[in-house]
Amino acid sequence: MNIGFTLNGRTVRVEVGPSERLLDVLRERLGLTGTKEGCGEGECGACSIIMNGMLVNSCLIPAFQADNSKIETIEGVVETAIGKAIVDSFAECGAVQCGFCTPGFVVAGAALFRENPDPTEEDVRVALSGNLCRCTGYSKLVEGVLIAARKLKERK
């Protein structure tokens, strides 16, 4: 079927099969490979995107459900002030190692800030708990999100 949605601010139309996953449409048809597949069952969060303002795992979304929706992937998130701030603080505080999970954490962090621009450490830990990282032990990821929140607040 032919579906249309807003992808990182631009309208796209794409023909999808009934069993196709949104993750594959984004990666293979639309060339947005920043969204990663880590487990294919919604456990790891590497495929996190923001759909209609909600943080979701794109591996669990049938592509046809994206019809008429508004989707933001890592490629769009990093063009926003929030996304840029998270990327910068992740880089500076050493939150990136193998990097496979990192786009998902950036997206999850951005989704958190829209709901709660002034999170506590506990808020951040809970908000990121749907994203798995095997390299960092999470300390610097949590720290990175807190630093980004502080910087964004100072800018206002």
């Binding site: 920043g34 969204t35 998270i86 990327v87 990136v96 990097g99 786009p103 950036v106």
Partner: peptide
């Protein structure tokens, strides 16, 4: 010195190319 790692930004922005990203 704790210089920022060379691959931090390419990875965090989703630009880094893993094998599954190659076509």
């Amino acid at each position: 010195k704790s210089v920022v790692r060379v691959d931090a930004r390419s990875k965090a922005t989703g630009k880094a190319v893993y094998v599954a990203d190659m076509f």
